[in-house]
Simulated assay, not measured.
Amino acid sequence: MSAPIRIGLVGIGKIARDQHIPALAHCDEFTLVAGASRNATLDGITTFNDLDEMLAGNDELQAISLCTPPQVRYGQARRAIEAGRHVFLEKPPGVTLSEVEDLYRRAHQAGVTLYASWHAREAAGVAQAREWLVGRSITRVDIQWREDVRTWHPGQEWIWQPGGLGVFDPGINALSIVTHILPMDFFLTRARLEVPENHQAPIGATLDFTDANDTPIHADLDWRQTGPQTWRITVETRDGTLVLDEGGSKLFIDDELVLDGDDVEYVGLYRHFAELIRAGMCDVDIRPFRHVADAFMMGERVIVDAFHD
């Protein structure tokens, strides 16, 4: 067995504490040896003020996981790549397609791994859903992705700023699944973005896509849902209907529960990252991000009531 890869975590906020740190603790492929944050520390782990201090203070560091807001991630990823470290990007991988493509070129030239992660693809039912859809004729796709921003992003102002994506921060999870499981490419035809009068990013969005066969693909994204949350993708085919529910952890075929899995998303991400590093490869799929960029480019902006956390 190869020795665990020594990794540092940059950004010790909610997503790092909720997902990354527990996943790394259950992933034998990595050892968490350092953290970087101006506002937080990790028990038993050396914590630096920022990435530059981390890189200067730990010569044995092999990989960096970036859990910082996307607005600052390009510069951090570039410096880590230039220092010869493998880089894991939380989703979304950046604020523009161009900067992510530039990071991919730099990683390839430097001979290090760059992984643009999409955690929802690692949900328990996604792989089986993808396999079931192979060769089937799809007639309609419906995406319902509705949650309460106050629950999942309390007090996080960066999500409402340019580059923060607003409701597309969770909505891109749905897009990452459908781009992975559907056996055809699709493109946006219409978008309606509801933007609070006191913010820059949308709180709700409706999207219509199609493909070369004119298949209707519809998405409703909303950040104002209280009570039970809705993360559901329905794919109708000539052979039956597939539903991925609860973010992909539950898989139904024709109303029959086929799989009800545990939350294994981030452990799966880090295991894939380790495989990429061992193989000397990158994984940078920007299709979900491109659909979001298309929505911002062609979407009708509708101003709605102010939103206060």
Rank of each mutant, 00 (worst) to 15 (best):
E131D: 15
I159L: 13
T237S: 15
T151G: 08
A279D: 14
L51I: 08
E275H: 10
I81C: 03
P22Y: 08
G166P: 01
G35E: 04
P162F: 07
L9P: 01
D260I: 05
N58Q: 10
N198S: 09
P93L: 04
F307I: 10
N39D: 12
L221R: 06
H180I: 01
L193S: 03
I286Q: 09
V95R: 00
P4D: 13
V72T: 13
F296V: 03
L165W: 14
E256G: 00
L133H: 01
H108R: 15
V33E: 07
H20C: 07
P70M: 04
G8W: 01
K250N: 12
T234D: 09
L103W: 06
T206E: 14
D262K: 13
P93T: 03
G240K: 08
N58V: 09
A83N: 10
E82H: 09
H218G: 05
G261C: 08
A205S: 10
I138F: 01
V302Y: 05
V112N: 01
G247F: 00
R6A: 12
T226M: 11
L133K: 06
G75L: 12
T113L: 02
Q76S: 06
E256C: 04
R106P: 00
V95G: 00
A205W: 07
T96Q: 02
W160Y: 09
R238A: 15
T31I: 13
R290G: 05
Y115K: 04
E157F: 02
G204Q: 14
G44M: 13
D211T: 11
G227A: 12
L257D: 03
A107Y: 03
T31D: 12
